[in-house]
Design a protein around this nucleic acid. Structure first.
Length: 464
RNA sequence: GUCCCCAUCGUCUAGUGGCCUAGGACGGCGGCCUCUCACGCCGCUAACAGGGGUUCAAACCCCCUUGGGGACGCCA
């Protein structure tokens, strides 16, 4: 059995978007679990719109997601001679011909066809003219006049196309460069690609490409067309739906493993399983689980998925990631150990690392810069309560150990003495040490803050 | 316009002729837990687009309609 080879061929005209990432993921998983190869190929034959910057950005995003490729990146822009040698071959064997029609003329033909209620096509005017090369002349593929192209799509099943739906499409521009259809086929064939798993939008290209494969005598790969990802309004995902670029999710505080787990479930399923680690994916992924219909990108579920991976994530790693966000969005540069103490407090609370950074902001301020919620101060730090807080502060100062257990015992003892309910004191203490009415558990929070910070805040609060 | 593809709760989906008075998950709603906010736990909500067939039996098979998407470039 031959080795399975898949590929991901983005064109560097934009960032790696959600849909592309999912397609890449499917290809990556399929190759990996079959001991095959996963190739990255940059489709930059459109020089005008392709940039190095986008190429780098796409590779960065794939790296972030951990979609490592075995070969590449290959650049189509560097392979023009190869494509042309095959165009020449087609020219020699009569599989293609020169055409001298101008774009305007072709457009007229299309208009004409449209006017007659037909599919807009080139009418084959130069097909039998035996033209040679010349300025302004393109090379067109000689599409068979009759017959059907049939292929068995991996995910959609048998698909048949009447060749009459296709015209003699251009395979080489007047400037001598090969066109996409030609480049992909030559590349996929030369690179030994066995499974072409790509977006739905390429489904209509497949018959044309199969024709080229056949004309060139290349063995046919298997094709699989994955449905697209829609925005909440069920329209094609686009800028107006917010974040479409994968790296935007990184910036918003999503974990790559969460993106992977969420993305794979969009259009693929494995029974009732919802969450997958990379290893589980490598074990359980299968082409059979792929669905046929388009799916809507759902932020709520992504958030849920992300919060799961935050809950179960490795603390030092999460702390490192949190630190990056803190440093890039605030003036703080907290010590790694401090962040590692903070993270567990927020693992069950934060949906994203960004959110974690925001909620944990009070840990990073010192007592002087800590913002206090005026309304909360007025409501909870009453004169009577302040007296209790002052007493507690002095007891905390004397505590042998400043951990949550000791703090809780101290508080319990104080409540016992005074006959107060914990509820009466909890929010006031919270406001005193965090400036707000929401935070992780009080004693855990104080332990992480440490004695110095905690006491400084008590003192500060009593002056407000 | 022509061609291609698709169609189960609001969303992601399970389901491949009887196990389905349709299962899970997200969300939403209600409750429990509770020092706040979360987490967690329990419960509820909600779908086979419509119409014809085929069959003893249809969410599953066939046809039509409707709806959605895609493609018809010297873009990829």
């Amino acid at each position: 059995m031959t080795q399975i080879v898949t590929r991901f061929p983005p064109s560097p005209t934009g960032y790696l978007h959600i849909g592309g990432a999912r397609t890449a993921l499917f290809n990556y998983l399929y190759a990996r679990q079959n001991g095959g190869k996963f190739i990255l190929r940059i489709e930059d034959t459109d020089q005008a719109r392709s940039t190095q910057e986008m190429t780098d950005a796409i590779i960065d995003a794939m790296h972030w997601l951990g979609l490592d490729f075995d070969e590449g990146p290959f650049f189509q822009s560097e392979r023009g001679d190869i494509y042309n040698s095959y165009v020449d071959k087609l020219l020699e064997t009569g599989g293609a011909y020169y055409c001298s029609c101008t774009p305007e003329e072709v457009e007229e033909m299309r208009e004409m066809a449209r006017a007659n209620g037909l599919k807009p096509k080139y009418n084959g005017k130069c097909r039998e003219m035996g033209l040679g090369p010349g300025p302004g002349r393109v090379v067109r593929f000689k599409t068979p006049l009759t017959g059907k192209v049939v292929f068995d799509d991996i995910i959609k099943g048998p698909i048949a196309w009447d060749v009459q739906e296709m015209d003699d499409f251009v395979i080489r521009r007047a400037d001598g460069s090969a066109i996409y259809q030609m480049a992909v086929v030559v590349d996929d064939a030369e690179m030994g690609v066995t499974h072409v798993i790509r977006g739905d939008d390429h489904q209509n290209n497949t018959p044309k490409q199969i024709l080229i494969y056949q004309a060139l005598g290349f063995p046919l790969p298997k094709f699989g067309h994955v449905p697209m990802i829609l925005g909440p309004d069920k329209k094609k995902m686009s800028k107006r739906h917010g974040a479409t670029s994968v790296m935007m999710y990184k910036d918003m505080g999503y974990l790559p493993e969460a993106m992977l787990s969420y993305l794979v479930r969009l259009g693929w399923s494995h029974g009732d399983d919802e969450l997958f680690t990379r290893d589980e994916l490598l074990e359980k992924f299968s082409l059979e689980g792929l669905g046929k219909s388009a799916s809507v990108f759902d932020m709520d579920k992504l958030n849920w998925t992300n919060s799961h991976f935050i809950k179960t994530g490795d603390v030092p790693r999460l702390a490192g990631l949190l630190g990056e966000i803190v440093r890039s969005t605030t003036q703080f540069d907290p010590a790694p150990e401090y962040l590692e103490a903070i993270v567990p407090l927020y693992q069950p609370r934060a949906k994203t690392l960004k959110e974690m950074a925001e909620q944990a902001a009070f840990f990073l301020h010192d007592a002087e810069t800590l913002p206090y919620d005026g309304a909360a101060v007025a409501k909870f730090l009453t004169p009577e309560i302040r007296e209790h807080l002052a007493v507690m502060a002095s007891r905390m100062e004397a505590l042998p150990a400043f951990d949550h257990k000791s703090l809780e015992d101290m508080a319990a003892a104080y409540l016992e003495e005074t006959g107060l309910k914990f509820k009466a004191l909890a929010q006031p203490i919270r406001v005193a040490i965090t400036g707000t009415t929401m935070s992780p558990g009080l004693f855990e929070t104080m332990e992480v803050l440490g004695r110095e910070r905690t006491l400084a805040r008590f003192r500060k609060a009593l002056t407000l």
